[in-house]
Design a protein around this nucleic acid. Structure first.
Length: 576
RNA sequence: GCGCCUGUAGCUCAGCUGGAUAGAGCAACGGACUUCUAAUCCGUAGGCCAGGGGUUCGAAUCCCUUCAGGCGCGCCA
């Protein structure tokens, strides 16, 4: 999504600052080019921003070492820069630390819970399709990915000024309901379903598949029930509605725990009556061809298998629904982008129907974006609802909450509202873990790993945030931008500020790459730098000026941690 | 068979718009609580960046190729 890409959005952009100085000294290059050549050096003794001169070598026909040395001497002194050095072909810029610290910390203190936010998406709508569980099937660990990634993207776009529209495209239509009706009539009862909820529905669904292997006529029966649903049969629709209610009740319980909300729940059934005109349109545009009794859009020209629109029995498919839904959403929301947060296994499907939208002549086809993620496996095996091989998300969340409560009882038994804090941290641990590696990687579910609260975890970052709160509460004094930055002179403090400085850029990178894990990992870095600082330097010291300066840094970090946590869908409790 | 994705420390992963000695966490071992919450911090150990070619002043990063794993490839979503 390169059209989201911006240069740094920092008010204080140190690369920009240095690029504009260099531009005057290197007339052959514009500041844009120089800007992109600048990098952050790996070691402290190499300064804070560096320009490798190797590429200049060819243009200027001199050795990189020579170029670096000559340029260093030409660069005029600047109050924002402490010194400039040349080292083996690099020009290393050392910032005026005091000024840099002042600027970065003050910005955070001024912006507070808006720190890092922007209005670059002002007036633009982003539709995000995520979660989308199937009715009557359990909400398992695999569904968490779509939910967590989508929810986080929702918040990131909002924070950067877009108007996000969250859509839960519920899987609430299809032949599986026919199967459920058959199963219910044979093995279910009103009471058992009322009591057992989705677990009971799943059990009879699994039973259906077991029995259907022996008796294939059950499949026909199921299909007939689905046909009845489509024809508006009262009994069928009442059962469907009932299954849906039971499922939604449970889903909502999970969404409540996760703090996830949607702006629309228009699912598959919503598009039932909207498909015929779209099919008509496909016909009019001469895109449909008959093949083996079905209607398809041929995509051979584009090196893809055909996109199936209508089955040979006349019923529609998911591509039909997705095409219809996309057109509906474009009409309804006039989106800048419409994101589909679903598994990587569906890539081909999305490429196919995106192409169909293009062939229909819609110029907004390039605003549709599939946001794929890797699969969750369980001990190396794929999760399969039909086999009953699942780990329910609710079970994982409640285990994590229980564990958190035990830790609180042990470490901080006098904590107020333990239950709520335990929920925030327990759930946070799970969500954080799910958002900590690149979306595309497959993950293997492990109880040990997901219930680990040490190291690079949600509880670690939340704990660090609570530390900042605790310090500020104990201090009981006003912290403002009047602090003396020259007192923050240690390497831990400077390192912490350097990391803090990156926060706004990380948000843009996360949006640009549609990758919440960029924020998750950043928070770990920031928390690590903070904890080192915390360990090394007492904050609540006697000296008022020093205390004020350190508290200002603590508060600035607190804003970044809290805002970052919020953007990946976690709470930031004041006390743990 | 064709296509897409992945392969970095024992494990889980960063780093991939090429740049300075490849970084974290977990696990292991050794340290640090009379002091702001030890869900913390410090140290030790652990790498032919899957293999092989190429491009380049410079490759974990780009290109080609081989291997391994995952996923997909017409009436499920």
């Amino acid at each position: 999504m390169n059209n989201f890409r911006l240069r740094s959005i920092n008010m204080l952009d140190i690369k920009q600052m240095i690029a504009s100085i260099l531009e005057k000294e290197i007339p052959t290059l514009d500041d844009e080019t120089i800007y992109n050549m600048l990098e952050y050096p790996p070691e402290d003794n190499m300064g804070d921003v560096a320009l490798p001169c190797f590429k200049l070598s060819r243009i200027l026909r001199k050795s990189p070492v020579q170029i670096a040395e000559e340029l260093v001497n030409k660069i005029p002194s600047d109050p924002r820069i402490e010194k400039v050095e040349s080292l083996s072909g690099y020009i290393n810029f050392f910032l005026n630390r005091q000024e840099f610290i002042k600027e970065v910390v003050s910005t955070a203190l001024r912006d507070k819970n808006k720190y890092g936010s922007r209005d670059i998406g002002k007036g633009k709508n982003i539709v995000i399709d995520y979660s989308a569980p199937n009715i009557a099937k359990p909400f398992h660990i695999g569904h968490l990915r779509s939910t967590a990634i989508g929810n986080s993207l929702y918040k990131i776009f909002e924070f950067l000024g877009y108007n996000s529209i969250g859509v839960n495209h519920l899987g609430d239509w299809g032949t599986q309901f026919g199967k459920l009706i058959v199963a219910y009539k044979r093995w279910g009862s009103k009471e058992s379903i009322e009591n057992g909820g989705i677990k009971e529905l799943m059990d009879i669904y699994v039973e259906f598949h077991d029995e259907a292997e022996k008796d294939p006529s059950l499949e026909d029966e199921a299909r007939q029930w689905f046909v009845k649903m489509e024809k508006g049969d009262k009994e069928a629709l009442e059962l469907w509605q009932w299954f849906k209610e039971i499922s939604l009740k449970e889903f909502n319980r999970v969404y409540e725990l996760l703090d996830v909300r949607f702006d629309s729940h228009a699912g598959e059934s919503f598009y039932e009556d909207k498909m015929p005109p779209v099919i008509e349109e496909l016909k009019e545009k001469n895109l449909l061809t008959e093949s083996q009794g079905a209607m398809i859009v041929d995509l051979e020209e584009y090196q893809m298998p055909p996109c199936l629109i209508i089955k040979n029995d006349g019923s529609t498919l998911y591509a039909t629904r997705d095409i219809t839904a996309a057109i509906y959403r474009k009409d309804t929301y006039d989106f800048e982008k419409c994101l589909y947060v679903t598994g990587a296994a569906q890539s081909l499907h999305f490429n196919q129907w995106f192409k169909v939208i293009e062939l229909m002549g819609y110029d907004w086809h390039d605003k549709l974006v599939h946001v794929p993620f890797g699969i969750v496996s369980l001990g190396g095996e794929k999760l399969a609802t039909r086999k009953g091989k699942v780990v329910l998300l609710e079970d994982i969340l409640s285990e994590a909450i229980k564990k958190t409560l035990r830790i609180i009882e042990e470490k901080n038994p006098n904590l107020e509202n333990k239950e709520e804090v335990a929920r925030q941290i327990g759930v946070g641990a799970i969500v954080f873990s799910d958002l900590s590696s690149n979306r595309i990687k497959d993950v293997s579910f492990s109880w040990d790993e997901i219930l680990n609260f040490d190291g690079e975890t949600g509880p670690y970052v939340q704990y660090t945030h609570a530390r900042t709160s605790s310090l500020l509460k104990r201090a009981e004094e006003n912290v403002d931008i009047g602090f003396d930055a020259s007192l923050l002179s240690s390497k831990e403090e400077f390192q912490l500020v350097k990391t803090l400085y990156l926060f706004p850029d990380k948000l843009v990178a996360a949006m640009d790459e549609l990758e919440p894990s960029i924020i998750t990992r950043y928070l770990v870095d920031l928390a690590q730098d903070f904890n080192r600082f915390y360990h090394e330097h007492p904050i609540l010291v006697e000296d008022k000026d020093l205390r004020q300066a350190r508290l200002a840094l603590v508060l600035a970090v607190k804003y970044a941690l809290a805002n970052g946590l919020k953007l990946i869908g976690l709470n930031a409790p004041e006390r743990v």
